[in-house]
Design a protein around this nucleic acid. Structure first.
Lengths: 223, 223
DNA sequence: GTTTTTGCACTGACTAGTCAGTGCAAAAAA
DNA sequence: TTTTTTGCACTGACTAGTCAGTGCAAAAAC
């Protein structure tokens, strides 16, 4: 499940052939990808309900019937989109933590690497992130449970590193792991979305530096 | 906006009657409040587009026509809701900062007080917060500009305190004020929403303590 | 004191339009 | 051949917004 490298993985990376013996990507999978991409942008901009299937089909350059040939319904298309996207994020976070550990870094280094991995992800898939945040705390929606499961998966990765940090006496044992993980995720999420929305010209390194500082408590006092 | 303790005192100079409920702010204002309350909950749960005007009217115990008698359109109702809610938050943050300053606290104390004020706000108006987060980073929406203005107003309060902290040599002058403010807001927002959604039984003090720790860099190292 | 008028707040059936999803025959890949 | 896609007409449910009319209390007229 671990993705390969920090090399920006495109959506296409999760591609898999649908025919058991077939080797190539397959025409069908390509169509699905086009639909994912079209849907993610439109839904991020307008929201799920305000986005019509006709729009999605048009943006994907595909007939409406094709949407229904490939997905049972509009919500199913959306749910698969969510699962797919969060899968990528989780893999990327886990990978960042593992690589740091293998390179002999501390747990704080791991956290820092995960912050960066988060930023890279958001930079690459801003629409997905937007859409995810917009839907995460909604209740009474069809895909609510999907979202919960998938969220927990991602947060658990951060919690894991925090826990190891405490066990290794590297982090204060008084920290609240769950809350701190949430707060860290929120810090990265909101800062990155603001960055994308209001200062897209700034570099990722810049943003990373600012968050690193906050993470490592180098905000108060002089350097 | 959900009902809050202090009854909004409206201009009753021109109002002819105030018979129902005694010290209320007039019949019309009462209806508007009911509509706000109904709308905020429903939109937080389902999103703007998925929420129908009929639902809002029904939940408010009012006829559909009344919605349009009181608001020009569904979006206008929503926009006024947003303005109202963020106004409350901004006032609350500013108040927290001022009170701390008057009591002779440091800038970090001010930040901490604002974190708490944010938590109190979210605790009191969870639906509003949910809805705000869900809509904030959307593009191509009618109320986009309203949202931007109102967001900047709130973030500016945090930025102001950070700036004063730097000027007073209390905070590192290397911090990026805009990004740090965003990150702090995000930290509080996401942690609080997660708290509400997944561990509502925890106390506000608990959550505040966890965030304080993060804010003050008391995460790494032993206490 | 009684009747009539005024105007605000509200009502709910109705309109005009939108959109998810269907059905199907024919064309293009594979 | 089989799988996938296309194009397009169609339906039925649902929805934002409208409008003629109601209820009512205070003011005006009688």
């Amino acid at each position: 499940m671990t993705a390969h490298g920090t090399v920006p993985v495109t959506i296409r990376a999760m591609e898999s052939s649908n025919s058991p013996g077939g080797a190539g990507g397959g025409r069908r999978e390509a169509t699905r990808q086009k639909l994912y991409e079209a849907a993610v942008t439109l839904i991020a901009e307008q929201g799920f309900s305000a986005t019509t299937v006709d729009e999605i089909a048009e943006r994907a350059g595909v007939a409406k019937g094709t949407v229904y040939y490939n997905f049972a319904s509009k919500s199913v298309l959306f749910e698969e989109l969510l699962r797919h996207g969060v899968g990528l994020l989780t893999a990327s976070l886990r990978d960042a933590a593992e690589r740091t550990a293998e390179a002999g870094g501390s747990k704080v280094d791991s956290l820092d690497a995960m912050v960066r991995a988060g930023l890279v992800f958001i930079d690459r898939y801003p629409s997905f992130t937007q859409l995810y945040v917009a839907e995460l705390w909604r209740t009474n929606r069809a895909w609510q449970s999907t979202l919960m499961v998938v969220r927990q998966e991602a947060v658990a990765v951060v919690e894991g590193v925090l826990r190891e940090g405490v066990e290794a006496d590297e982090l204060s044992e008084e920290i609240d792991i769950g809350l701190t993980a949430s707060a860290l995720v929120g810090m990265v999420l909101v800062a990155a979305l603001d960055w994308q929305a209001f200062q897209p010209e700034r570099s990722l390194d810049d943003v990373h530096a600012a968050l690193s500082r906050l993470l490592q408590g180098r905000v108060s006092g002089k350097p």
